[in-house]
Computed example of a mutant assay.
Amino acid sequence: MEYIEEYFRRGFTTNEMFDLLAVSHGVILSKRTLERCLSKKRFWRRKNKTDVVEVAAFIEQLETSGQCQGYRWMHQKCWLNGIVTDRETVRILLRLLDGEGVDLRSRNRLRRRVYHSCGPNYVWHIDGYDKLKPFGIAISGCIDGFSRKMIWVEAYKTNNDPKVIAGYFTDAVVNAGGCPSRIRLALGTENGHVAEMQRFLSENTDSAIFGPSTGNQRIEQWWLTLRSQCAQFWIELFDKLQEDGFFSDNFLDKSVIQFCFLQTIQEDINGIVSTWNDHRIRQVHNSRSPHGRPSILHAVPQLYGGRDYLQNVDLEKVEVCLEECVFKDFPCDEDVFYICVDLMSEHNLTLTNVFETVNLDITLRQLINNDLGINH
């Protein structure tokens, strides 16, 4: 059964699979039958482990933000990529392969504030992340307050256009089959369309809550995860470009970075979101929030004392909202995009990894500046 294979690959326990199959898919199996299915497909967690050399080779792929990640996060990534191993093996390999990174991560300390939500889709927290914005990369995110499942995290050339943010929201509503009971937004014109759409779809004028970004606790806390597991790598990479004189904080330089890096950064973020949604949140003694995997907390909230607050929506109203949205198209300015495509074809420029992409960024920047008669 395809669901069993998917859930095993995502690292779920037998009990978690049992609950998801029954609640989300209406598949009723005894636990013994489920265990036999797993055994028949040779889905064993303690047998047929991946060779340690192969595990080490996977972990050693630290050319991007992987070098920011701890052993629990890396263990989850191993499972998601079909590598069967245990946490202790990953911890030891990380110590051997990246001892300095382990020491740096071990010094971090987070202070957790008390938060409580009634169930999934009771509150969606929406905000923008601007740490990469000086380099032209703007990020928008939304997290479910109860389960901590990421609803979306999108990197694009802007997160200030209210129609773009509305597009993310409307897509999420379509995918979920309804809208949340309420949304929590930062103050700002970019969120105006989303707030109006939420009120329109839910037929509740009080369903959009505004407040300062610093008070939007759930999403602000997740930005720390994005920073440590992903964004820090890109910040340091772009800072190095700037230090070396290959970035001048102007329109052209930002556009070239968008052209070269936006898709790679989005793929990196997608990996972080996938890992986050399936990782296990540990129990915290002073927290009122349930512990477990965000994806399962969101799918079967009744197991954790909650219920789903998703609001049914009128499809005609959704169509009206879609007409007011703008969706991703070109990663950068359209003219710059076609210039870069032509230059890559003319000079036979290609890319396969992040370091070749850095060289591509530098080369395209120089070629365009030369055509414009700008000396750098």
Rank of each mutant, 00 (worst) to 15 (best):
W73P: 06
V102Y: 02
T64K: 07
R91P: 05
E60D: 10
C68Y: 08
G70W: 02
K77H: 09
I92S: 13
Q61P: 10
C78V: 12
W79Y: 13
R91N: 10
R105F: 01
M74S: 07
G66K: 12
G66P: 05
N81F: 06
T64S: 10
D98F: 08
C68Q: 12
L97H: 03
L93G: 02
G66Y: 15
W79F: 14
S106E: 11
R91F: 00
T85E: 00
T64H: 09
W79R: 03
R109Y: 12
W79C: 08
I92Q: 01
E100N: 08
F58D: 04
D103F: 09
R87M: 06
L104F: 07
D86L: 00
R109H: 09
L97V: 11
D86K: 02
E63Y: 08
R105N: 12
Q69S: 08
E63Q: 10
D98L: 02
L104V: 12
G82I: 01
R107M: 05
L110R: 03
V90Y: 00
L62W: 09
D103L: 12
R105W: 06
W79G: 10
L62A: 11
L110Q: 14
D86V: 09
W73D: 06
E63H: 07
K77F: 03
Q76V: 07
S65I: 13
A57W: 10
I92W: 13
Q69M: 05
R105S: 07
Y71P: 04
E88T: 14
I83S: 05
C78F: 01
T89Y: 05
R91S: 00
G101V: 06
R72T: 13
E88I: 14
W79K: 15
F58T: 05
C68A: 14
E60L: 07
Q76C: 13
I92E: 06
G101A: 13
I59Q: 04
W73M: 02
R107N: 12
T89M: 11
G82R: 04
D98Q: 04
V90P: 00
L104P: 10
Q67G: 07
R111Q: 08
R95D: 12
L110G: 01
E100F: 05
R95W: 13
D86I: 05
G101W: 04
I92G: 01
D98S: 09
C68V: 15
R109E: 03
Q67C: 11
L104K: 10
R107P: 02
G66T: 13
E63D: 15
D86S: 10
V90S: 03
N81I: 01
A57Q: 14
L62G: 14
V90A: 00
R95V: 06
E60N: 13
I83E: 02
L62C: 12
G101K: 11
G99S: 11
V102R: 04
L62M: 15
N108D: 09
R87G: 09
F58R: 06
G70S: 02
V84D: 13
L94Q: 00
Q67L: 09
L97P: 04
E60M: 06
V84F: 13
E60W: 08
I83Y: 03
M74H: 06
Q69E: 02
Q67T: 15
D86H: 07
D103M: 03
G101T: 02
W79L: 14
L62D: 11
L94Y: 01
I59E: 00
C78Y: 03
V102H: 07
A56E: 08
I83Q: 03
T64A: 11
